[in-house]
Nucleic acid binder design. Structure first.
Length: 603
RNA sequence: GGACCGGUAGUUCAACUGGUUAGAGCACUGCCCUGUCACGGCAGAAGUUGCGGGUUCGAGCCCCGUCCGGUCCGCCA
């Protein structure tokens, strides 16, 4: 009986194969395929249908001599869901479609069944290379857009990458542990999403911006290797590379590892993802470990694209001895030499480079081309021997261009950093198949925050540079003896191709160092106890040394897939106004729900 | 919160300097077609030019307001 039922089930089953797997080897087999009508070509007495599912496309032929219900095939429209049973046949050599993996064969349909009809579509599925429709429309019908090749492949890639990460972590004794979604406000800077409590009138949960405190408490709990594909929620405005509202991180924390041991443990993951999952090339292995101040000076940003060299050089000493007043009087003069940059036209220099420099708050952008000799509007301010000295010092070659910024040292580098990016873009210096990973280390513990109100009541105060739970290098002694703005933290970033993927840190697990670190940033002992009492408390019951990081899953996908827009790697993204047009979130709720939550809307 | 760009058929776009009945591809409807794979051919339907006001003999086009969308800055690891 059981066997009879299963035989019957097989006979009645929706499909025996997928639309992506059939090859010449399966010729003469009788199969059943199910999927969507991707294209149809109705020749009158003969109908071709490209049948599509997640796995691929197979051509179906309906022929009145073979297909029992041929008339039904005449009614097929785009995106109908159908089930077809028939025989696999080899195509004649002239009819082989080389663009299709299944192009050597076709399915000769004996029986057709329509499983679901489809209305006229708001946009075409097969026309996937375009994607020019209004994004609002595409987001509203995201389930249709997800049928398109490009987006479908991105989402499949996403699943594969996460699967690879899980296997990697599992093989290294990491435990995947879920932390609460309903939690309390976190110390990080972004605005929280709040969830009103029904049971506690006037109180709110917060959605996690990151599971930062939980993962540290897991270390105290002895779960010495933790990870999670963690949802993070932040109520901030979106950007092309920043998902509005929510995103995912590979959240990681480990105990009993020095910083460099942690790097050694995690680096192979990024190398394997680059090479095995994304099929790209790792530029440098092991990853360079560059100090924060060095990259800021040399590339004008803490997340330089290292696929190309183009370093910024300080020439303040040289500039002081010239007669060019702007250079002599400036605090610093920095220069970037762009090989082959002499090809940039005056229009490009004025309208693109100088404009960019001004947008970045430079007063101007000086430049010199070197062809047979130096040329440019500022040549007249220098003596020949000064220019020769510069040429030798910077090893300038024919057809180089030099961009100078004279300003505060940091600003000069920052502006030239933007110039560097633009020049590289225009000269196509970045190889899209290469990923240049690097660790940026030694971030400052504190920074000057002009907007923060200090203890004295006036604007401007010392604030944490990044994560307040980072360990200051040198510990308590350093905190007590050095100028706070010179103290470095055991804090690091991992970057690639100009994208920041994660920050991380060796954490501060010592209550005394914590109190002192917060004190410098203007928090009293009481304030720290009130806000982080549970953390301090936990650290007093035996806390292991621990460190971790949290690379953004969506950013990793953008990097591997070369997507400039983060929404192309998220199945159901929110739009620029943090709305989701398909489901219609956020939405109003009825009065009764609000009453239950002790909430009244003022709008 | 601010700056810039945009909004014409289901969709992607066109419409000269303000001038006839706002056009084309794809999709859609009907007909023809047995080897197509961006199939082909014939015919057809489809529009409050985002919305409101103004200037003009006349506005898709110019002006004012407003709504919506995109990009960037502010914000944000």
């Amino acid at each position: 009986m059981k066997r009879l039922l299963s035989a019957l089930f097989f006979y009645m089953s929706y499909r025996t194969n997928t639309c992506g797997e059939l090859r010449s080897e399966q010729v003469d087999k009788i199969v059943t395929l199910a999927g969507w009508v991707h294209k149809r070509r109705n020749l009158g007495g003969l109908i071709f249908v490209d049948l599509r599912d997640r796995y691929g496309i197979t051509q179906i032929v309906f022929n009145p001599d073979i297909t029992a219900n041929f008339a039904l095939a005449d009614t097929l429209k785009y995106e109908y869901v159908i089930k077809v049973t028939g025989t696999i046949v080899a195509r004649v050599p002239e009819a082989v479609n080389k663009d299709l993996l299944t192009g050597a064969i076709e399915l000769k349909a004996q029986k057709l069944e329509i499983l679901s009809q489809a209305k006229t579509l708001p946009f075409e599925i097969f026309d996937a290379h375009k994607e020019e429709e209004d994004e609002e429309l595409r987001l509203k019908y995201r389930y249709l857009e997800l049928r398109r090749e490009h987006l479908k492949n991105n989402i499949i890639f996403r699943a594969k990458m996460i699967q690879y990460i899980r296997a990697y972590m599992d093989a290294r004794d990491f435990l995947e542990i879920s932390t609460p979604i309903l939690t309390v406000s976190s110390p990080e800077g972004a605005r929280d999403f709040l969830v009103p409590s029904r049971i506690h009138p006037g109180k709110f949960y917060a959605l996690p911006q990151a599971p930062q405190q939980y993962k540290q408490l897991l270390m105290v709990a002895g779960m010495d290797r933790y990870y999670q594909i963690a949802p993070c929620m932040r109520d901030e405005d979106p950007r092309a590379d920043r998902s509005p509202g929510e995103f995912y991180q590979l959240d990681v924390e480990t105990s009993f590892l020095e910083r460099d041991e942690f790097f050694d443990l995690m680096e192979p993951l990024f190398i394997e993802l680059t090479e095995k999952v994304a099929g790209k090339i790792v530029q440098q292995n092991p990853f360079p470990r560059l100090p924060y101040q060095y990259v800021l000076d040399t590339y004008g940003t803490d997340r330089p694209d290292l696929r190309y060299d183009l370093k910024i050089v300080d020439v303040t000493d040289w500039a002081k001895n010239t007669d060019f007043k702007v250079f002599v009087e400036a605090k610093a003069v920095r220069v970037i030499v762009v090989p082959s940059g002499a090809q940039f036209t005056r229009k490009e220099i004025d309208e693109e480079f100088t404009e960019l420099a001004k947008r970045n708050k430079a007063k101007g952008l000086a430049w010199l081309k070197y062809t047979t000799d130096f040329e440019g509007t500022i040549v007249k301010f220098f003596k020949p021997e000064e220019l020769n000295e510069l040429r030798d010092k910077l090893k300038i070659k024919t057809n180089d261009i030099l961009f100078f910024v004279a300003d505060e040292p940091l600003l000069a580098s920052k502006v030239l950093g933007a110039v560097r990016t633009l020049a590289a873009e225009k000269l196509h210096l970045a190889d899209p198949n290469v990923i240049a990973w690097a660790w940026i280390v030694d971030f400052p513990m504190y920074e000057w925050s002009p907007d923060k109100v200090g203890i004295s009541g006036e604007a401007g105060a010392i604030d944490f540079g990044h994560n307040p739970f980072s360990l200051p290098q040198g510990g308590l002694d350093t905190l007590n003896s050095k100028d706070p703005l010179t103290i470095l933290a055991d804090q690091y970033d991992i970057i690639a191709n100009g994208l920041e993927l994660s920050s991380g840190a060796v954490r501060n697990k010592d209550p005394e160092i914590m109190y002192r670190a917060f004190e410098i940033a203007g928090y009293t002992r009481d304030a720290v106890n009130k806000k982080f009492g549970h953390m301090i408390d936990a650290f007093e019951y035996g806390a292991p040394p621990h460190c971790g990081f949290a690379p953004g899953i969506d950013r990793l996908l953008m990097l591997f897939l070369g997507e400039p827009n983060i929404r192309a790697v998220i199945p159901f993204p929110k739009n620029q106004h943090a709305e989701e047009p398909m489901m219609g979130s956020p939405s109003t709720v009825d009065d009764r729900q609000l009453r239950d939550l002790h909430i009244r809307s003022t709008d």
